[in-house]
Design a protein around this nucleic acid. Structure first.
Lengths: 150, 150
DNA sequence: ACAATTTAATTCGTATACGTAATATTCGAA
DNA sequence: TTCGAATATTACGTATACGAATTAAATTGT
């Protein structure tokens, strides 16, 4: 893979898009009055809105984070009154993550703010191009998870 | 923008790809014997290999980082013997960033390792799809930089 | 039953990036 | 020329994520 300028390097582009979209989501949430949800919570929240009561490691697997990353994330989400840890009665090593009332009621506003922000940022991009992009990114993820790359 | 699963959310995909490729680059460099270059240095190094002696803020603009992010990055790159800060004789507020001997000689091995890693991770993706993806990502960056989004 | 292994979660140290505020210097207008 | 605005960089606090090591509990092989 050859590229002359950084703007032509897919890694550079992905990095910048990640940071820029994260920043836009933060502002989008704030201007929708959602003040206790940070961009990093989105994956965990979306997962918990469809599946109640997961373990930290399961939640991490679904949201794409390592177990050791979940500890701090869940600490912050608990501090922000979105989830609570409950001891798992079946397994005293484990805990269950459950939405609080605030975490549940955030569903509407957060989906709204995320949808609106992404609609704005992806405006003017043909559907087929967006589908191609998502397919490419999924392929890269699969390649990353192959032996020797993990 | 609607999506049922996280795997269909472009922000989720971009986040995961960024983290997974970063991790792969770290390993790719290590296995090429490049031990003092971290993935976050790549943008700055590529820039300095084509333009000598930039100010921290200029380097940040070209590499896509805020000035306040440059301080720590340059601290680490100096610690790792890749660059050095020189006081700017024209402006005592400013400094010039220059490659060290190590920073210069890293060019070959780093370009090699990055190229090889990205080739592996983007294997099997048609050129036209990759071009579409890069175009989409550039469009998103432009949308992010518009008024109200910054 | 129980020692060895595996598993769940956390702790710790580090890297990465940002925004806001502080500091130092330069520049421009009066 | 001197004072106030603009600029370059850094300092500081916070968020985010990882890997390696640790702790505690469950599981497995014998």
């Amino acid at each position: 893979m050859m590229f002359q300028s950084l703007k032509n390097c897919p890694y550079y582009l992905v990095s910048r898009v990640y940071l820029a979209v994260t920043s836009a989501l933060k502002k989008g949430m704030a201007s929708s009055g959602v003040n206790n949800v940070k961009p990093a919570y989105i994956g965990a929240l979306f997962t918990l809105w469809s599946e109640k009561s997961l373990r930290p490691s399961e939640l991490g697997r679904k949201a794409g984070l390592e177990p050791s990353s979940m500890t701090g994330l869940l600490d912050r989400m608990e501090r922000d009154n979105l989830v609570k840890r409950t001891p798992d009665p079946q397994d005293r090593r484990a805990s269950r993550i459950e939405l609080t009332t605030d975490g549940l009621s955030a569903k509407g506003p957060v989906r709204e703010a995320v949808t609106q922000t992404l609609d704005t940022l992806f405006a003017g991009i043909p559907d087929t191009d967006l589908e191609t992009t998502k397919r490419v990114l999924r392929t890269v993820l699969i390649n990353c998870s192959k032996e020797g790359m993990k």
